[in-house]
Design a protein around this nucleic acid. Structure first.
Lengths: 235, 235
DNA sequence: CCCGTGACAGCACTCGGTGTCGAAAGTATC
DNA sequence: GATACTTTCGACACCGAGTGCTGTCACGGG
């Protein structure tokens, strides 16, 4: 048997580097902390830091690589019967779930990325990879569709924006409340405008007023929407 | 009087640095070119490079700072009667116009940013500033609206995505065709789904078939759109 | 017991970026 | 036209991130 930590001995140094790094980042700031400071506090050699993290910024986002792989696998496991928009919304929920697993850690990291320009830029590149993954999936699903790639890019961007909207709101609140519920509300906004397929959750149809729209075929769709919305009292 | 170049003497060094940098970037690649190589070719001191460009990456995007300022001024000069979505679409056109001014330069830069990770990350941060500018504008315009900030973030992301879709397509083609027309088509896709206000350019209304839609008030808007679209033969 | 393999520390080096100082060139004032 | 002030540039020194290399130690199989 030996110690039960035999399997977790390998990432032990990685975890201690993350702990040492965040301890120093929070007490002196990111740019005021050198890699030498981190490895000295962790009691390891400088070269070992770059063995586990390709750059100093990577230690701030230690789990995004895994999450990106999870999202890729999730999308690859899709069925053709799935609504693509619903699918990418569910994929975005995976990211929110990762943030929600460690609220205090996520909030601390959020404070850092808000202040340090280099970290914000790095986070942007991570977000871009998520968006690209979603866009690639939608592109293949809409390969036959006219303007399929344009639609894929726009919807992927919209999903990411909605997700980030809910995420930042939750992080700004200090990790209070249910982030999954917030992202659901934001993604519903996207799904309501872009989903093309079957309704997943049709509420009980209660009889109500009827709206009649009469328009020419040449009228642009957005104009129809505007008329209906205003007639419904949408503000 | 003196020489007529009195006013253009100041950015002379800046331009020569850009020229020297791109010459070396194109013949040996970005990462294989050091700042010392650039200043040696330009015949100036090393310190002067960082006087004109805060980082090595900035020399690749010499005009984005100006374009961002133009966009900010353009949005600040908006009238309340303008449709916000139409306004941000026009703002996005400003960026495309900047790219279209120097097609060969834009294409060369595109090739670089595709290959070099660091440049792509830098470009992401630039795009993020554009998106933030658009989002800030929409946020103030929709301050009273329910879900105004969410809508602002999503629409800003959609506009940027549509713009980049047209831009990349034009750049991949080597700068052939009319990029302004391409971005108009892509932005029309966004405007059609998000614009809320008056029509800016109503084409001559030719009598055509009439579509009649009857629906309940409780029916979600996207379902109405789907029905109308399919009845119009949208694939 | 020996040898191969892999993880680690230490060192040296490159390169991007900054602070500082001194020289030179331009400009205003007398 | 000479002097004092200001701006601009070049040169040097320095810091920190990131990489390549070497030696060493531990482990595991022959």
């Amino acid at each position: 048997m030996g110690t039960a930590s035999t399997n977790s001995t390998k990432p032990a140094m990685r975890d201690s580097l993350i702990a040492a790094a965040f301890q120093l980042f929070l007490e002196r700031g990111y740019e005021q902390t050198t890699v030498d400071d981190i490895v000295t506090l962790a009691g390891v050699g400088r070269r070992s830091f770059f063995r586990y993290f390709p750059s100093k910024e990577d230690v701030v986002f230690p789990d995004h690589e895994q999450c990106l792989a999870d999202m890729t696998r999730f999308l690859a496991a899709s069925a053709d019967s799935d609504d693509p928009v619903v699918r990418v919304c569910d994929a975005a929920r995976l990211v929110m779930r990762m943030y929600a697993e460690n609220p205090t850690f996520s909030v601390q990291r959020y404070r850092l990325t808000r202040e340090v320009t280099g970290l914000r830029t790095y986070e942007l590149s991570v977000v871009w990879r998520y968006e690209k993954t979603l866009g690639d999936y939608l592109r293949t699903r809409w390969a036959d569709r006219r303007d399929g790639t344009l639609r894929a890019n726009v919807v992927a961007a919209a999903v990411v924006a909605a997700h980030n909207h809910a995420l930042r709101h939750w992080l700004r609140s200090g990790g209070e409340g249910d982030p999954l519920a917030e992202v659901d509300g934001a993604l519903e906004f996207v799904r309501a405008t872009w989903a093309t397929g079957q309704v997943a959750d049709a509420p009980a149809e209660e009889a109500e007023d009827v709206v009649v729209v009469i328009t020419k075929r040449s009228t642009p769709m957005w104009r129809v929407v505007r008329e209906v919305e205003s007639s419904l009292g949408e503000g």
